[in-house]
């Protein structure tokens, strides 16, 4: 039998390398890049020590509003993208309200906990609010995605986070307990749906328009 020519041998080797390369790329594209954030994780005291939600605004504000939200809930997204910018600009940044955001991931939402964890990792770098805005804005994109983690990761570039630090944080899943602790706290407070707002000791369920929030803040500010 005749020896294959050098060209044939080369093309065979070339074809093998090309197939291996294409296979590697396909494998990388289909590989799940997203860590699973455990549900109903046992909350350790250290998970929640000193943490009472993500706070924005003056400590001396007369009114404190606590929002319980789920990143994958469409109503929360509506509030975050439509009402929240006004609330932040006119009530929080003016010192009238201190806003507290607490995670309340709903079990029916596949990516809620991962979103909450990715935001907690952004908070480690001091960019919680920017990142939360970004993932709420991108919710329609990642909500139905097979791998929302990829889209969460794309947001870190927009927000200007250190990717290596964020990755390490995500892999560690160190905020899983704190997220569960936050949800437990919401249940204890009487929260049953998202978004829910605790204003002046009362729970308001559903999206609150800016005008409604302002009216409540005006009323509470006048209170002795």
């Amino acid at each position: 039998m005749a020896e294959p020519s050098p060209m044939k041998r080369f093309y065979a080797l070339f074809g093998l390398i090309a197939a291996a390369g294409v296979g590697f790329l396909i494998w990388q594209m289909n590989k799940a890049s997203t860590p699973a954030v455990p549900v109903q994780v046992a909350v350790q005291p250290a998970d929640t020590a000193g943490f009472e939600g993500y706070s924005l605004g003056s400590d001396s504000a007369r009114v404190v509003i606590t929002e319980y939200a789920d990143y994958q809930c469409p109503a929360c997204q509506q509030f975050a993208t439509v009402e929240w910018p006004y609330v932040r600009e006119r009530l929080v940044q003016t010192g009238r309200v201190r806003w507290v955001f607490r995670d309340f991931p709903l079990s029916q939402h596949q990516w809620s906990r991962l979103a909450a964890h990715s935001a907690a990792c952004a908070d480690e770098q001091g960019k919680f609010w920017e990142y939360a805005d970004a993932i709420f804005a991108a919710q329609p994109e990642w909500s139905t995605s097979r791998d929302a983690g990829k889209i969460f990761r794309q947001q870190i570039e927009k927000v200007g986070l250190n990717a290596g630090t964020w990755d390490q944080c995500m892999t560690s899943l160190k905020f899983a307990g704190r997220i569960q602790g936050s949800a437990d706290e919401g249940v204890r407070a009487g929260v049953g749906s998202t978004p829910s707002f605790v204003i002046g000791g009362r729970i308001y369920a559903g999206v609150l328009a800016y005008d409604k929030i302002k009216a409540l803040v005006d009323s509470l500010s006048r209170a002795p």
């Binding site: 983690g149 794309q154 290596g164 990755d167």
Partner: peptide, 26 residues
């Protein structure tokens, strides 16, 4: 192509180990 696919969001995390790849790519 691998790095380009990553930038397009088709690949979630780069097989890098140090995190330096993401820092550079982002």
């Amino acid at each position: 192509a691998y790095l380009w696919l990553y930038k397009m969001g088709a690949i979630g995390t780069l097989a890098c180990g140090t995190g330096g790849c993401e820092t550079v790519q982002l």
